[in-house]
Write a protein that binds this DNA or RNA. Sequence first.
DNA 1: CATGAATGAGTCTTCATTCAT
DNA 2: GATGAATGAAGACTCATTCAT
Lengths: 212, 212, 212, 212
Amino acid sequence: MDSTRGDHHPRHSRRQRRIERRRQEIITAAAQIFAEKGYANTTTKELADAADMAEGTLYNYFEGKRDILLAILNEMSLPIDALLQDARALQSREDFVDIVDKSLAIFMSHLNFTRTLLTEIWVDDVILEDFVVGRLQHIGQSVQAFIGKGIEAGRFRAMDPEITSVMILGTFLALIIPVLRGKRPTPTPQERRKVAETAVDLLLDGIRVRAM
Amino acid sequence: MDSTRGDHHPRHSRRQRRIERRRQEIITAAAQIFAEKGYANTTTKELADAADMAEGTLYNYFEGKRDILLAILNEMSLPIDALLQDARALQSREDFVDIVDKSLAIFMSHLNFTRTLLTEIWVDDVILEDFVVGRLQHIGQSVQAFIGKGIEAGRFRAMDPEITSVMILGTFLALIIPVLRGKRPTPTPQERRKVAETAVDLLLDGIRVRAM
Amino acid sequence: MDSTRGDHHPRHSRRQRRIERRRQEIITAAAQIFAEKGYANTTTKELADAADMAEGTLYNYFEGKRDILLAILNEMSLPIDALLQDARALQSREDFVDIVDKSLAIFMSHLNFTRTLLTEIWVDDVILEDFVVGRLQHIGQSVQAFIGKGIEAGRFRAMDPEITSVMILGTFLALIIPVLRGKRPTPTPQERRKVAETAVDLLLDGIRVRAM
Amino acid sequence: MDSTRGDHHPRHSRRQRRIERRRQEIITAAAQIFAEKGYANTTTKELADAADMAEGTLYNYFEGKRDILLAILNEMSLPIDALLQDARALQSREDFVDIVDKSLAIFMSHLNFTRTLLTEIWVDDVILEDFVVGRLQHIGQSVQAFIGKGIEAGRFRAMDPEITSVMILGTFLALIIPVLRGKRPTPTPQERRKVAETAVDLLLDGIRVRAM
DNA sequence: CATGAATGAGTCTTCATTCAT
DNA sequence: GATGAATGAAGACTCATTCAT
């Protein structure tokens, strides 16, 4: 290593950036393949080919196959955690629609990550715990708090907040799945907004005509 | 050996029953393991051990590992298809609650089957098509018909029936998943009924207090 | 075992005959299958099915799969050894034609045995030694003696008797192989005689027109 | 690493050569083992050991076990097909002796290949068709043409050309087999020539002294 | 750092043989 | 004797990981 020059900091950081860029390439390519075939059915050879490098090179950037999977999932942590922050401030119907819309946007713009996540959750308890359980609890709490406040304020009916929040998640899941599985095209932003509004409306007022 | 009777049909049928029993043992054991570790991460040795037999014996009853998976899924087809029949006649809120309740009952009493199904859907397109797509369409149509009639009759608000039915399925999914993943105990029949009623209520009237 | 009756000899011999008959059925069926698929590619299940019995039953009559193979080959020992006897008395062209004709007849009427034999000779040294080497030496000696006497008597040219006898065997082999492999139909007795005569003629006088 | 040159063709070709060399090593080792034990009785582990590599490495160079077998046989196609070319021009006794001599030389210098070929012909119809039938027909036609012309020219007696060519092949076969089976040492070139001459003489003039 | 050949433990599957009925 | 289910030792093949170049 030629650390002959005193100022090897910039170089070092350039190296860091290069490494990070390379990792990203691998992650992106891998997410694509994992989403298509599932983690267990994907070989490292395929990953290497998709990332346009040799098999061995993968191991310069990741500990192993599984490490790539975890990196993919980590990738989504940031935007999701940002969402979680927003969700805390749920106040009005508009907030609600916004959150749902944003969530749909995030997952749909990372279809491969999402599908990989959903695929592995079932099989891998570590992943379930690390990437899902905690966050779901967060969301659940936010929603429950929102509903709780609504009930207190007399705006919402007194319903079991837990079941309610579970239903919201399920609704959300169901909206994404057909897109994930290619059964439905990714919606345009306008369509997505429409879906979010319908979903929130439905949640708030149900499908029954208000008896007047 | 009762070769005293000329017809050896009973013997033959006894053999058939024995074979069927053995297949059931394997299926049950395999569903357990598949549910725990996923299809791809399960070895035939493990399946054999779980069914308390030698590896080779599996192949006396099934064509191969994948055949066992398909048999597991087929196992659920009957009760599910029966449900589909019932769903056609959706008329009242009570019908709705009944269906949801029954559905929850079926899936929760076959947790291993359900979990295996959900696990493999993501990875295996054949399974997705054969075991899910058709049935979901059925359900979707029933629900959409129910909603459509409600709208016509002026009982329901005019909402996008497709999004609505998707939400129903998602709700349903979300209710099952925590149980599947062992995050929540299997509910008692009473609890289950309660959940079903809450879910249907929520769906029909939303969470918002009726403006009067 | 009911050895209660004094005269169980006849019964015993009837039993022996029954056993022998059963062995024959197995041998015949097995030769068929071995000839078609080769020893190594034939399963005991197939043998059992062909002999119309259960797999386990085979083991009441033979030590194992290989034992069946050996029995098949033994089957041919008798007629072949009879041939060897005849071959000793080779005197005239007619004798020669007769022997060749008879040999063709034997092998062609036991095509399955022959093909099985030829297949396994290459792989199995025991079989090579037990069933072939000794007999070939016999034949070789007979032919060499025949030729030797001919040379002495001035009827035959002085050629290397060993090469000559090898050629005779080869000729013989080549005549059988196409039939064995189904590339040519089994000849009628008349055709067979014709072939034998041509072959012997060729051997004796070559294809070249006699310079006169 | 000489990445100094823009074109990396030489490196690529060196790689190609290395691959080809490795394939050859495997083929040579495998031919040895197949010849000794037969294809079906040889395990991939044995092949790997014989080629002094791990089992998995075989699969970097061949599709599978059977592919190795086919490669072995293909190996002989070149020299054999060259022979076929020569055989077309059969004119004189000398030509004939030459061809026989060369043929013996080829097969005897590739004993393992030859033995493997002969072993599998019986069992594997694809091999029979691909590697043998076509070529035998070629040879048969050449010989028959040679004989036919001889008969026309009055040099040869009018014999069935088919039987004759079959006999020639048989003779040839018989000359090789004892060497293949280790019952006779590989002949020296001189001995081989002698054998070829004897065989051709025998074929042309038979063993009978010309009646004058 | 990049490469990709080598590795060998691990997989699914087959099948000759045994043995309880 | 007959049966055929059970067995488990191999066998062909795969693939994540290592490492020499």
